[in-house]
Design a protein around this nucleic acid. Structure first.
Length: 813
DNA sequence: GCGTATGTAGTTTTT
DNA sequence: CTACATACGC
């Protein structure tokens, strides 16, 4: 019914038939299988714009969820460039951002303090450590990190402590700790990331009027990266969409809205943190999805790159089935390089980068992707030595840096003195004579009287008590002083009066930290001066649920005027967090808004942002990005696919999807490389080239390794072997395969005899050999001499074997 | 209570 | 190898 009026719309120009179909879907449930580079974000944003423009929905009826702040921002930016719409009426954001907004709006019903604080992963871990200490939990049996993962996994599955089955003693104990942790968080007025999701889910589940209000409101729900949703997130969506056991009591009064899930099962790479690709199939079944659209036209890469991606991923089973295609032609072949060592690989990479740059490629269009962070080091060294500017993604982000966390801890204590995590962080930093002993006393005190550390201070006697009271008094004074200040003034005052500035001034390596602290002031400043902050914040009318509402004429664009008036405006951006409380008219302080922002958006980590620099990152963090030239390095068995991923059933397939993601990042040119040897944990490892090479189309590849004679028996291998045996240490895999005897063989003259022995049978480390039963393999290590001579050989199809050379029939390839 | 020495464990990660 | 945590001595 909207086709006619919409076909002229400039919004819909230049969409391919599948994209157009997705954008103009009727108001039903649909699954869009969007391949890499198929214009997914464009479809999503155009769909929203089209719905608004054709008057099918008001901004308030839109709920669009993403995983990252970056994706949410991009959606918002693109949308506002398409339509002069006031984006604030819409709920566009991350799962966590939206849940936060929801809980702030209904904090009383959610049983939270209005200014509840959010624990990031660091905070959560220290909260658990604190708890374990208090309850004398054996941290050998129950490592805090594992407890944290356990708790996070429970919450991702929507389980409270009481819902978790406790079969054995260990499980029972873990559940008990989970329950204690929940109590502690509740007492302190803090929530972790999982809690944001779970608590808003429960609020919807347990409160019919709230639930039906939102079910009535959100006519169109759109979910990005649906393959990455976990069980709880899917349940949350189902709830809001009125599907399943919590369908509206009066279905006629609340007609079902539309849920559009956009995802790519081939790019599901977060199963390890609870993502369920199965949600896609469940969605189709449970929502009776009749409209499924595949976006397979790729607008990013040339043919050889896509062929490689397609053929690789075809080795996975249980796919929904999708093949990327392009009109762009085959382009250049995919270049494959084999090096002797990780150092050589790095050198080759740097040389290639230099050549590319000399030929006119801009550095920021060159990306280096690797499976694990540890691989960046060699590469960084090589780039640094060659003075090639580069930027590493990942690692500590701005709001996670120690000095920033310290400053934030003081700020949080101003808002909420009961936040024990922040109290612990700030109490003796900078050092003020409050040591472990005093803290212990205080913790005992607080525990026995069931109060927060802050409140327990008054009961501590002696010198410890004096110091503690001085600290608390200082906080109280700060709170008093800052009560009427601007955010900027508050932070500046806290930085000086906490002693942080002074402390880092005296520290010899403190310069960077001081700069970061002043950057924190800047961050607050720009947060406050965000667009729209200056608008008058007026008391809003309240609807029957206690939700604040605004008149539809207020702050609305012409495009959306005159539409559904029944929507609430509460946005995760600062101006909306400043919306007055529905009952008291009281506004959330800019400080709380800023602290929330700091927790939910950990900030970028790049120091050298904006520079024209080569981009270094893990394959995981490359998802969603694209570059003209991509190098994927370290494509070796054990590394990519990673050995630790091979345990569970779906492990290899997820690794393959990871490789698929990596390949599809490249627009024009793709390099794949692997190395014969690699330093890992201070020891040289001999890696075979990844099985993934065998899964790529030969016709799309071009080996560019120079064919030097004697190349594969390189010096790198034997020299590191000498170092290795001289140290008297064996790597884990060696000792496990060849236990007792290896110890003896390693000591004394045996080690020295290896080279001469090797000469006798003609084998060296790295020699390629053939065995009648095991096939081709590579010599990793040699031991003993004469009849005792043994070789450790890695056979691609049979693994690492120790063979007695007097028995095994080996031929040198 | 604070700074240095030893020990140990080491995929991927956003919120 | 190297980052981090705990343990020890001052």
């Amino acid at each position: 019914m909207f086709q006619d009026e919409s076909s002229n719309s400039p919004l819909l120009q230049n969409l391919n038939p599948e994209q157009l179909a997705a954008v103009t879907l009727p108001a039903t449930h649909a699954l869009i299988l969007a391949g890499a580079g198929s214009g997914k974000t464009r479809v999503l944003t155009t769909r929203i714009a089209w719905l608004l423009q054709t008057g099918q929905v008001s901004p308030g009826g839109i709920l669009a969820v993403t995983f990252t702040n970056k994706a949410a921002k991009e959606m918002l930016t693109r949308l506002t460039s398409m339509l002069p719409v006031n984006a604030r009426g819409m709920w566009i954001g991350t799962f966590h951002g939206l849940c936060n907004r929801f809980l702030r709006a209904h904090y009383k019903m959610a049983n939270l303090p209005q200014s509840f604080q959010i624990l990031d992963t660091q905070d959560q871990l220290s909260a658990i450590k604190r708890l374990c200490k208090q309850f004398n939990i054996d941290d050998e049996r129950f490592p805090p990190k594992q407890l944290m993962w356990f708790i996070a996994a429970c919450k991702e599955d929507g389980q409270r402590a009481k819902d978790v089955p406790a079969r054995d003693e260990e499980a029972r104990k873990k559940v008990e700790i989970y329950a204690l942790y929940e109590d502690q968080c509740q007492r302190e007025g803090v929530v972790d990331f999982g809690e944001l999701m779970l608590r808003s889910y429960e609020l919807l589940r347990d409160n019919i009027s709230v639930r039906e209000h939102y079910q009535r409101r959100f006519r169109h729900i759109l979910i990005d990266e649906f393959q990455d949703t976990n069980k709880l997130q899917y349940a949350w969506i189902k709830m809001l969409a009125g599907q399943g056991p919590h369908a509206p009591s009066d279905a006629a009064a609340i007609p079902g809205g539309s849920v559009i899930a956009v995802g790519d099962d081939d790019q599901s790479i977060y199963a390890f943190r609870g993502a369920r690709v199965g949600n896609m199939a469940d969605f189709v079944r449970e929502f009776s999805v009749t409209h499924q659209i595949k976006l397979e036209r790729n607008y990013r890469s040339f043919g050889n790159i896509l062929d490689s991606a397609n053929q690789l991923i075809s080795h996975n089973t249980n796919r929904l089935g999708k093949n990327l295609s392009t009109d762009a032609g085959p382009g250049e072949p995919v270049r494959v390089y084999e090096s002797v060592s990780d150092f050589a690989e790095a050198q080759w990479f740097v040389d290639e980068v230099k050549q590319l740059v000399a030929d006119g490629t801009s550095r920021k269009e060159i990306a280096l992707l690797y499976r694990s962070n540890a691989q960046s080091r060699v590469m960084e060294t090589a780039l640094f030595n060659a003075s090639v500017p580069y930027r590493v993604y990942g690692g500590l982000r701005f709001f996670e840096r120690a000095e920033i966390k310290h400053a934030l801890a003081y700020l949080r204590l101003l808002e909420n003195p009961n936040d024990d995590t922040s109290f612990m962080r700030a109490v003796n930093f900078p050092p003020r004579g409050i040591g472990a002993r005093s803290i212990e006393q205080l913790q005992d005190m607080a525990r026995s009287s069931g109060c927060s550390l802050h409140d327990g201070v008054s009961a501590v006697s002696g010198k410890a008590g004096t110091n503690l009271r001085a600290f608390v008094a200082k906080l109280d004074v700060l709170r008093e002083q800052t009560s009427a200040m601007s955010l900027r003034e508050i932070i500046e005052l806290v930085l000086t009066h906490s002693g942080l500035t002074e402390h880092y001034k005296l520290e010899k390596e403190g310069q960077d930290r001081l700069e970061n602290l002043s950057e924190l002031v800047n961050a607050a400043e720009s947060f406050v001066s965000q667009e729209g902050f200056g608008r008058d914040v007026v008391a809003l009318p309240v609807d029957e649920l206690g939700n604040s509402m605004r008149s539809p004429n207020l702050n609305q664009s012409p495009a959306s005027q005159g539409l559904d008036a029944n929507f609430e405006i509460l946005d995760e951006t600062l101006p909306e967090l400043l919306a007055p409380d529905s009952e008291t008219g009281e506004t959330l302080s800019p400080l709380v808004a800023f602290l929330t922002h700091a927790a939910l958006e950990s900030g970028d980590n790049q120091a050298q942002a904006g520079q024209d620099a080569v981009q270094l990152m893990t394959v995981h963090s490359s998802k969603g990005l694209e570059f003209d030239c991509v190098f994927i390095t370290g494509i070796e068995e054990g590394l990519f696919p990673h050995e630790n991923a091979m345990n569970d059933a779906g492990g290899l397939e997820e690794e393959r999807r990871l490789m698929y993601v990596a390949i599809t990042r490249a627009r024009k040119r793709l390099y794949l490389s692997h190395s014969q040897t690699r330093m890992l944990h201070g020891q040289t490892r001999y890696n075979l080239k990844s099985r993934f090479f065998l899964e790529l189309p030969e016709s799309a590849l071009k080996w560019i390794t120079p064919k030097n004679p004697g190349f594969s028996s390189g010096l790198g291998a034997s020299s590191s072997w000498e170092k290795h045996s001289a140290s008297g240490k064996r790597s884990d895999w060696a000792s496990s395969v060849f236990s007792g005897r290896a110890e003896q063989a390693d000591q004394g003259p045996a080690a020295a005899s290896q080279r001469s022995a090797a000469a006798a049978h003609g084998l060296r480390n790295g020699t390629q050999v053939f065995h009648a039963k095991f096939g081709e393999g590579k010599v990793l290590m040699l031991e003993g001499s004469g009849d005792d001579a043994r070789a450790q050989i890695n056979f691609p199809r049979h693994g690492v074997k120790w063979l007695a050379l007097s028995v095994a029939k080996l031929t040198i390839v």
